[in-house]
Amino acid sequence: MNWSLFWDLTVSGLTLGSVYALIALGYTMVYGILKLLNFAHGDVYMIGAFMGWFALHWLGGPVNPSATAWLVVVLMFLFAMVACGGLGVAIERFAYRPLRNAPRIAPLISALGVSFFLQNSALLLFGASFRDYDTFHLIGAKTYNYKDIFLSVPQLLTIVSAIGLMIGLTLLVARTKIGKAMRATSFDREAASMMGIDVDRVIASTFFIGSALAGAAGVMFALVFGQIYHFMGFLAGLKGFTAAVIGGIGSIPGAMLGGLLVGLAESYATGYLPQGSTFQNLYVFALLILIILIRPSGLLGKADVKKV
């Protein structure tokens, strides 16, 4: 048993999985409240990566930052999260709010329109060339190891900050008033509004938080893997959606678990199965179907009880 290979695959699976988990969280939160699949979420992630790049360059660039590297990274995260949160709120206000009582499939097309708009605006404003975060110069690629387990600094940063954000989100949803309001609204929107909860504000906050997480995911991805371009949101969005469904769509811990699972599944499939990398999407989908067959509402999802 080649432990070194196993640990390498696990680490890269967890890193990518953290990114997917953050994207999946955005999907699941919005679905829980609105029963809407936000197609444009992947493109919010892409905008987050670009916002992080701009923050980096306004602060002097990777080679010669005007503050210490760690402060720059924190500021990049904050800027991307706030910008994406705002973007999410704006998208909700314009593309989804008028469609709140429309058949479920109408907001899907609106979301598609937003996705086209964001992707091509990014192409127009930022150009077609790939941009690089140049993490090597910014925070270096020092690797820490414990026996056979190797972790580079960007990977460690990604996993730790993802865990931190997830803990923060769980606390927010469980302990704060707005979190309680979110839970109530996702349980029964009409009853919540009758109880005096401002549903519009709750939904806007949900979008803000979900999109901020996507923005953070964008910055994280770019720090570890380097390249950003206008089309990077498409595949990531699809994977995030898959992760959300695997974990049970509507369930926050489910999205976290689903994301990590998808990341690990891709990694192990690539590493161990024949032609694993070529067919990795298929393997992940097969895993998804298997899970759905065993647990139809996803790993941690609740079975939807329909009142007749």
């Binding site: 390498d8 893997f225 498409f234 595949l235 990398s277 070529t278």
Partner: peptide, 18 residues
């Protein structure tokens, strides 16, 4: 040995581990 990646993929770490 032969394998493939998607043109849009940016994460090669698992493949590299292999």
């Amino acid at each position: 040995s032969r394998d493939g990646v998607s043109q849009q993929q940016s994460d090669f770490s698992s493949l590299i581990a292999k």
